[in-house]
Computed example of a mutant assay.
Amino acid sequence: MTTTKAISSFLAMLAAERGAAANTLAAYRRDLEGAEEIIGDLVEADPAALGGLGAAWSDLAPSSLARKCSALRQFYAFLQDEGWRKDDPSPALPRPRTRRPLPRLLGHAEVDALFRQAEEEAAGDRPDAVRLLALLELLYGSGLRATELVSLPLAAVPRDAPFLHVTGKGGQQRMVPVSTRARQVLSRWLALRPQGGKLLFPSRGEKGHLTRVRLFQMLRELAGRAGIAPDKVSPHVLRHAFATHLLEGGADLRVLQTLLGHADIATTQIYTHVDSARLVALVNSRHPLAAHRSGD
């Protein structure tokens, strides 16, 4: 796998799964190709080579350095997801102190509108509509990554236990809960799904599973039909909504980390920004000093 082909595949994933804009994709390409000019083949680069980028980029502003390092971290995570690398050398990259950008979010009303539209379309048991509803249930109801979702094998869906067996980044396996309503929709989809094969969401007319590109397209089309700006919706945004709304409901951050399949709790902590009002109210009502009035 050449660096040029790997970068092109990575950018295609960003466009399909996250809805990255053309300017964003161009910036990622510049950052990755710029790193390649310094250290050579990115696909084969070792931690020592990535560590040397700190010196090469020492004159950059912290925000610029953070952007370049973020591009490389996401690139190496992608290489691992695709099986093109077994290791991740990106921890050797410099870590500038900058605020991490907040994820795009969907409100409860927008999520409800998506589900109403999907449920109306699936009412007649049209296979493509039921499939879309099942995909939506698992994105928002279980917080799966797009890659994890589209590549689910049939064996991941247990007959009795309300859990899915998911293989995430780096081949790490975890179990994620599946709601009763999601299990009901999955049962409907299994009854309509084309016979044969070992994949839960097979592609049409060719071997393999539904692609991330097609999943992204279907969600944006659904958003448009539901009266929501299509550029607000993507598989990644629905995963963020899953995490945000669970945290709002009182979920423990460590539990959320497990559900999302994050190796580092710091990755999960990005979601704590959404619930500052609830946290303040919690301190005011539950802290031992809350029972004592000021001046007592």
Rank of each mutant, 00 (worst) to 15 (best):
A109R: 15
P288E: 08
R97N: 11
L25E: 01
A12P: 10
A16R: 06
R293C: 00
A16E: 08
L222N: 07
L133T: 04
V213L: 12
E120K: 14
L11S: 06
P127Q: 03
S234I: 13
P103E: 04
T258W: 12
D31L: 12
G227R: 05
L164T: 08
S58W: 11
A16L: 06
A35M: 06
L200Q: 08
Q184P: 02
L53S: 06
A56G: 02
L132K: 13
L32W: 07
V233W: 10
S9G: 14
L102R: 05
A243E: 07
A223C: 06
A49M: 06
L190P: 08
G205P: 08
V178I: 15
G170Y: 04
A61G: 00
S187R: 15
D160V: 14
A161H: 02
N23G: 15
V111E: 08
A27V: 04
R239M: 08
A129W: 12
L190E: 10
F75E: 00
L25P: 06
F115R: 03
H262G: 05
A21G: 12
R220M: 00
E121H: 12
A226I: 11
L238H: 02
P103V: 07
G83P: 13
A251D: 12
D296Q: 03
T272E: 00
A48Y: 09
Y271G: 06
D128W: 10
P158G: 03
S179F: 03
R254Q: 07
L60W: 09
H209Y: 11
G40P: 15
L132D: 14
F163H: 05
L215P: 11
S70N: 12
L215G: 04
E44S: 15
R145D: 05
D46L: 08
L135E: 15
P127A: 08
H287D: 00
V255T: 14
A55G: 12
H236I: 09
P162T: 01
D31W: 03
R30N: 14
S179D: 04
S9K: 11
P127R: 03
L72Q: 09
D31I: 06
A243H: 03
S58T: 08
G141F: 00
V280F: 02
D231T: 07
I7N: 01
A123I: 05
A223G: 04
V237F: 14
P158A: 07
Q80S: 11
S276H: 14
R67E: 03
R183G: 01
R214F: 03
G208V: 13
A226N: 08
F242N: 11
V274C: 13
H262W: 05
D88M: 10
S276M: 12
P127H: 07
R30A: 12
R30I: 00
L190I: 14
T167G: 00
R278E: 11
E121L: 14
L42I: 00
A71D: 02
D87H: 05
Q173P: 03
E206R: 15
G196R: 13
A146V: 12
Y271F: 14
P288F: 06
L138H: 09
A109C: 04
